[in-house]
Amino acid sequence: MKKQIKTPYLLLLPSLLGTSVFVLAPFLDVIRRSFFQAVGGGFVGLSNYRQVLENEAFQQALFHTLQFLFTCLPLLLLLSFLLAVLVYHLPFARPLFEAAFLFPMAIPVASVVVFWRLTFHNEGLLNKALSFLGFTGQDWMNTPAAFWVLIFSYIWKNLGYDMILWIAGLSQIPKEQYEAAAVSGAGPLRCFFFITLPQMKGSMAMIGVLSFVNAFRVFREAYLIAGDYPHNSIYMLQHLFNNWFTKLDIQKMTAAAVMLALVISLLLLGLELWTEKQEDV
């Protein structure tokens, strides 16, 4: 019996040790440092946090990040859900469509940068196509339109991932429910609104959190297409962190990292608690 208790700890040990030394302990150190001066090491209380929050670049970057999140998350969730419903109920060729929509996820960002550059350049493919259709294009990367370019490339990359998660949720609804509804004369839309939608709440919360977290990776596209200092409308927290890092502004970085970690942990804990409550009902 004693051996039984020891085994899991032994199995866990290497991973736990590494994670503690390289991730957890340094992060605790970061929390400690966020209350101290970087040079001199005096205790400064919350002054680092105040400095970050009052920093104008931070406020702007935060605003753009939130703007990005509040635009792309609803769009992505809605679009991928519609897609999942359509693909899930296809009578055939489902794997083919799943593969096509998932494909962009596998493509390294750097290897399609040439294509994005050609497309969104002031004299690029998109403007060509637009003028062919009789519209006037614009300089996509150097105007506020850059924001939409980023939204587009984020959705392009994540649509399939979210769709697969939705389909997994959809496939957990027992088929009998649809059959029973069909017997009592309900059409597909009624089934959708009264059977499918109510049971998708859990999936929605979970996919929302994952998409939120994945949204931080959009920095790759932004960086490769537009560099360190892109158009103001897509200058986001990730750029700011990066530029602080280049200046080795440890004081601001520690405080900002702690705040970001706090927000994300709370979000995840909220999801966890909410899911548990749903299951109890």
Binding site: F22, V23, P26, F27, D29, V30, V209, L210, V213, F216, R217, L237, Q238, F241, F245, I250, M253, T254, A257, L260, A261, I264, L268
Partner: peptide, 12 residues
């Protein structure tokens, strides 16, 4: 789920 930006300083 932590994005890279959170662990960036501590890893550094």
């Amino acid at each position: 789920v932590m994005p890279f930006q959170v662990t960036m300083v501590s890893s550094y």
